[in-house]
Design a protein around this nucleic acid. Structure first.
Length: 570
DNA sequence: AGTTTCGGCGCC
DNA sequence: AAAGGGCGCCGAAACT
């Protein structure tokens, strides 16, 4: 028997399954099974399930008390392969892949569904087009061949495997939920915002601050309306372009202090207030929907509740169950360490080979000990800073770490010229908006505006929406995007391998991954398991570093805290 | 009245 | 000090 099987759910709750050989080709006949979960439960030796979509299959398996070791998500792989092949934006469904393979009309992707507050995780993606297993197998075999044609086939295989592992982690985290104490959350809200009045309206503290703002201006001003605030400042003889905090805070006016305080608290009420609690917390768990690879860079997104933007003050509500702990682990200076690994800059690799504060080491070498300057310079290089101290200090960084700066500079140049850039494992950035016609041409679609040069600044129509995430035609903005993409995206590559490795060590424990935020992970576990989890994270980070980037001196240390409350970490 | 965009700000 | 990358979310404003 082989250890790799393919699976396709059937309409009647059953499934088709088939064994696969090492080459990814069928190694036996397709069998019909009356029950999807039992088909998996009855094959405990299978180590990798190949299926169309984890989101379609895995929640049902989890609901039946099953976990799988590994999987291969055909539609996520299709997305990555299309991107790598410069065909970003072509339909990514298995049905579309099959149509391209067989030469039929390519169906457009079904529209994305959006999260509803309080919605149960869906057992099916209602819009998805299912394929018979035989067709799915044909798409899978072709994808295996396309991996071989990638720039680095070994890395591409690792990327699709890692992305698939990410889909498993995400589905399991969606099921687990983040422990959440609604009573403590209400306490925080009451403490910050004051009592709520029965007649609706704003809570006491917000109402008081709004009154203070109005008093300072000498007339009624609604601090939650930017247009109102700009007008009020204008009447006071102060010109402001917006009401952003950084623009307001330097103004010398008595309304500024209560206004900024109001905005801070208003934000809490709107984004994480009482209605948020009502919508997103059930039975002691906050249940956002994590989606692996939801961004072009490979970072995850969540749907519902803004799970990746939980304000620090609200984290007081995240508390482990009795007798359990939260292991909160934060990667130290992840982005410059990733830059060291992908650029192979000798100086930066040496600095990143230590587990001590990387910014301090950089500043010792290039900024005579000024850590803040060093951090600004590094982040400026990664983000494409165009002014300020970071830019000024870039020269010093370039002298000491020339290969590292050259790496992101080259990415920026590629972006400005409309070329594509890739992460270390091969995730590829979308083409600029002006080049979408090329993709349309290759797909055999009509092109309506072929004359737009890749580096054109402005003047081109806005994106029509099928290029998610990025649509600007400004070449400098594309340069900054590409510069950041190679670092942020390669960091996401590494983070996926980290999650996969950590998930593996948690497999035989009660410990559960419950939260992941780019470079931070939370494991919920019985307190007896906490030390084991801490060690597992350390080992997973090192393994992920080796697997992702090969043998380099770069280390990926974590700051870990074993706590009962999230707010007590760091 | 329903849908899309904007302004602002939370997180990394 | 406040510029540069990636997101989600809310209410208000601006559309249809």
């Amino acid at each position: 028997m082989t250890d790799r099987w393919a699976l396709a759910p059937a309409e009647d709750g059953g499934a088709e399954v088939a064994p696969l050989g090492r080459d990814g080709l069928p190694a036996g006949p397709v069998r019909r099974e009356p029950d999807l979960a039992e088909a998996v439960r009855g094959r405990p030796d299978v180590t990798r399930w190949v299926w169309r979509s984890t989101a379609e299959v895995y929640p049902r398996l989890l609901a039946a008390g099953l976990r799988v070791e590994r999987c291969y998500d055909i539609e996520d792989a299709e997305t990555l392969l299309l991107g790598h092949e410069g065909r970003y934006g072509e339909p990514r469904s298995a049905a579309a892949a099959l149509a391209r393979l067989r030469g039929g009309p390519v169906p457009p992707d079904p529209p994305q569904r959006s999260a509803e507050p309080g919605a149960q995780s869906t057992l099916f993606e209602p819009q998805a087009v299912r394929l018979p297993l035989e067709d799915l197998l044909a798409v899978y075999a072709e994808q295996q061949r396309r991996h071989e044609r990638a720039e680095h086939p070994d890395r591409m295989r690792l990327l699709t495997a890692a992305e698939s592992a990410g889909t498993l982690v995400a589905a399991e985290m969606n099921r687990a939920g983040l422990p959440w104490r609604a009573d403590l959350h209400r306490g925080v809200l009451h403490e910050l915002l004051g009592e709520r009045y029965a007649g609706g309206g704003e809570p006491r503290r917000l109402a008081e601050l709004a009154d203070e703002v109005s008093a300072a201006f000498g007339h009624r001003v609604r601090p939650d309306l930017p247009a109102d605030v700009i007008k009020a400042f204008a009447r006071a003889g102060i010109k402001v372009r917006s009401t952003r905090r950084w623009e307001i805070q330097s103004i010398d006016h008595p309304a500024v202090k209560p206004l900024l305080e109001y905005k801070k608290l208003y934000r809490i009420r709107v984004a994480h207030g009482w209605s948020w609690l009502q919508d997103w917390v059930r039975e002691g768990r906050f249940r956002p929907e994590f989606l692996a690879g939801g961004t072009v860079t490979g970072r995850w997104v969540t749907h519902g509740g803004g799970a990746l933007q939980i304000p620090r003050v609200i984290r007081r509500a995240v508390v482990a169950d009795p007798g359990w702990r939260l292991v909160v682990a934060d990667a130290d200076q992840m982005e410059p360490r990733v830059l060291a690994a992908i650029s192979r800059d000798p100086g930066l690799m040496e600095v990143a080979g230590r587990e001590t504060d990387l910014y301090q080491s950089v500043s010792d070498r290039a900024f005579s000990g000024d850590r803040a300057q060093a951090k600004l310079a590094v982040l400026g290089a990664v983000y494409g800073q165009t002014s300020g101290d970071g830019l000024k200090n870039l020269a010093a960084l370039r002298r000491r770490f020339p290969k590292a700066v050259a790496y992101v500079d080259e990415a920026a140049r590629a972006g400005e010229e409309g070329r594509l850039v890739r992460t270390w494992l091969g995730r590829t950035c979308p083409p600029p908006a002006g080049r979408r016609e090329d993709a349309a041409e290759e797909a055999g679609l009509p092109q309506d505006d072929p004359a737009v040069p890749p580096a054109a600044d402005g003047g081109t129509p806005a994106a029509d929406g099928w290029l998610p995430g990025y649509a600007s035609t400004d070449s400098r903005a594309r340069g900054r995007f590409a510069r950041n993409f190679v670092v942020q995206g390669s960091a996401a590559d590494w983070a996926l391998l980290l999650l996969a490795a950590l998930r593996r060590t948690c497999r035989d424990m009660a410990a559960e991954l419950v939260f992941f935020q780019h470079d931070e992970v939370i494991v919920h576990c019985p307190k007896e398991e906490a030390d084991t989890v801490v060690e597992a994270i350390r080992q997973a980070a090192e393994l992920a570093g080796r697997l992702t980037f090969g043998e380099t001196p770069v280390r990926f240390p974590f700051t870990t805290a074993v706590v009962e409350c999230y707010a007590d970490a760091k």
